[in-house]
Every structure is written in structure tokens, then in C-alpha cells.
Amino acid sequence: MAEFFRGLINTLAVAAIPLVFVVFLGWGILKKVKVYEVFVEGAKEGFTTAVRIIPYLVAMLVAIGIFRASGALDLLTKFLAPVTALIGMPSETLAMALMRPLSGSGSLGVMTELMKVHGPDSLIGIMASTMYGSSETTFYVLAVYFGAAGIKNTRHAVPVGVIADVAGMLAAVWVVNLLFR
């Protein structure tokens, strides 16, 4: 069942982009749209959008880079580990939970390291990879998406993102402890 599901999704993922091209452009031809001209017209905006997000991304990535390079995360991990141990979260995976919303490459590194040390099928290995799959790099997404719309006052977006991350990490800890402990 799981294998079938995985095969199905993988096929869908491979076929999706060619399918979208065929359907969109084909539908355009059927509706007598001048597909080439319209495509170029739309594509023009790609440049301005990409350039517009630069300042937002610089601000965010520099702050996260400074935080990561300073070793502050290790201090935070030491500080929080006794608390998270109470809910069945090994301190090794706490570093993962703290890194996940900040940096995609950083959390990938933490996950790879944990698997090398503890093995991919250990409780820590399974928990770390579940955590990686349970969330997105929240602060990167915030910077890029709000950058595209030129949003500076983000209102409740940051608390919402952090609450969602905490929920995802707690759910990952709970379900992995339930199934694999």
C-alpha cells in the first residue's frame, strides 16, 4: 500500500510539469491565444520579481548567517534541552527543530550528521528526518514571498509561522515516539 502510494506520487511528480505545459499551451492554442507572444509578455515579469526580492533576502539571510556562525544555536540547545527531554524529544533532535525554520542547508546538514552518528533507522534518525519533512524553511519563505509583494509590515505572519513550526515539530516527536519507540 505504502509502496503503491509512493510509486503513484513519484509518477505524478515526474509527469506534472510536462503535463502542465501541454495542457496550458494546448488549451491556449484551442482558444486561439497567440501563445508565443503571450508567453513572452508574461515571462518579462520574471526579472523584476527576482530582482525585487534581493534586499529582503539579503536582510534575512545575513541575520540567519550571523546567528548560525556564532554558535548561539548550541547555547540555545543546551539551555532548552532539559525542557524538551520531558516530552520525549532527544536533545540531538532539538538542534534540528531549532535549525529547520531558519536554514534549509543548515537543517539538511544537521539531519545528515545525526544519521551518520546514530544511524538512519535509530529513533533519533527517524525523528530528525521526520522533522525535516514536517516543515519548510519558514524565515526564508517569509523573506522571499513578502519580498515579491514588497511587504515590510508582516503583521501576524511571524507568530503564525512560528506556531505552525512548533506544532509540526511536536507532532513529529509525538508520532515518531508512538510508532518507533
Binding site: 502542465v20 496550458f24 491565444v33 508567453f39 526579472f47 520579481t49 539571510l61
Partner: peptide
């Protein structure tokens, strides 16, 4: 940050073009 943004230009242009066709149609 700059190279990530610049690297987005290509895929951005591609998908915005496709989306525009979908919109017009």
C-alpha cells in the same frame, strides 16, 4: 542571497509565461 535571487529569474520567467497563457486562455 543575490545569487539565489538571480538564479530564480529563469524559472520565474518560464512559469510566469506559462501562467499568462493559461490566464489568457
Amino acid at each position: 542571497a543575490v545569487s539565489i535571487s538571480i538564479g530564480l529569474i529563469g524559472v520565474m520567467a518560464l512559469w510566469l509565461g506559462v501562467m499568462k497563457v493559461g490566464e489568457e486562455a
